[in-house]
């Protein structure tokens, strides 16, 4: 396993499970709604779109918050020959991979809905990776930004599924924006908000 992914997993630990639990909440609600009602196919699809997209958003929100707090920026590593785009892409891939079970469950509700949610997942993952970089400066951390942006996208996707390819097409922009946030970070500045010593490379008293 690549170093970057290994570090992120060690930082997240049990939060990986809790992120799935968070994602299962809207997905489970959508599943029960479909199961306990006789719905027209387009309504089943709408439930799948909303539940699936919200599930991914909730999971990314939880993971991004955990990453921002438990794995703060690593200043010295920025002197190594790798780019901000690379570091952001690694985080986004990690997030996207963890969305896979939620996408499979969405497919149980409606396959087309699952495909649409899959199509917007790269955008959501990159936006979440960017939110991790901005987390120390925000009182709402990374989760607030992910929930707000992702929630709006989920609602829009449920009502207008055709925007899914648009989100996919905008993924390069999301990647560039997240990489720019990575570069802009003032990594050796102390920020009290959302800061745990447990994962801080600059803390002398790490456990």
């Amino acid at each position: 396993m690549r170093f970057e992914a290994r570090i992120a997993w060690r930082a997240l630990r049990w939060r990986l499970l809790s992120s799935w639990v968070a994602g299962l909440l809207p997905l489970g609600a959508a599943f029960l709604f479909v199961r306990n009602n006789e719905l027209a196919p387009q309504h089943v699809r709408l439930a799948g779109l909303l539940g699936g997209a919200c599930g991914v958003v909730f999971a990314f929100s939880d993971l991004a918050e955990a990453l921002g707090v438990r794995r703060p920026a690593w200043p010295w590593a920025r002197s190594l020959p790798w780019s901000a785009a690379h570091r952001v892409r690694t985080d986004a891939l990690l997030l996207a991979v963890h969305a896979a079970p939620l996408l499979l469950l969405t497919a149980q509700i409606d396959l087309v809905a699952a495909l649409a949610v899959l199509t917007v997942t790269p955008w959501l993952a990159l936006r979440a990776a960017g939110a991790v970089r901005r987390a120390p400066e925000r009182r709402s951390g990374a989760s607030g930004e992910v929930l707000l942006e992702g929630g709006l996208l989920a609602a829009a996707l449920a009502l207008l599924p055709w925007i899914a390819p648009l989100a996919l097409a905008a993924t390069p922009w999301a990647w560039r924006a997240a990489a720019e946030r990575e570069r802009e970070q003032k990594v050796s500045r102390w920020l009290e908000l959302h800061h745990l010593a447990v994962g801080d490379p600059q803390s002398w008293s790490s456990e």
């Binding site: 690593w74 010295w76 002197s79 020959p81 456990e207």
Partner: peptide, 30 residues
Amino acid sequence: EVAARRGLAYVPEQPDLTPYATVREILGLV
């Protein structure tokens, strides 16, 4: 970014190293 840092080595006063790795893993990354 990559080309500029390729021949660069930085030794900080405060050795900030990620606490989630071993020394060998960090050097493996380098």
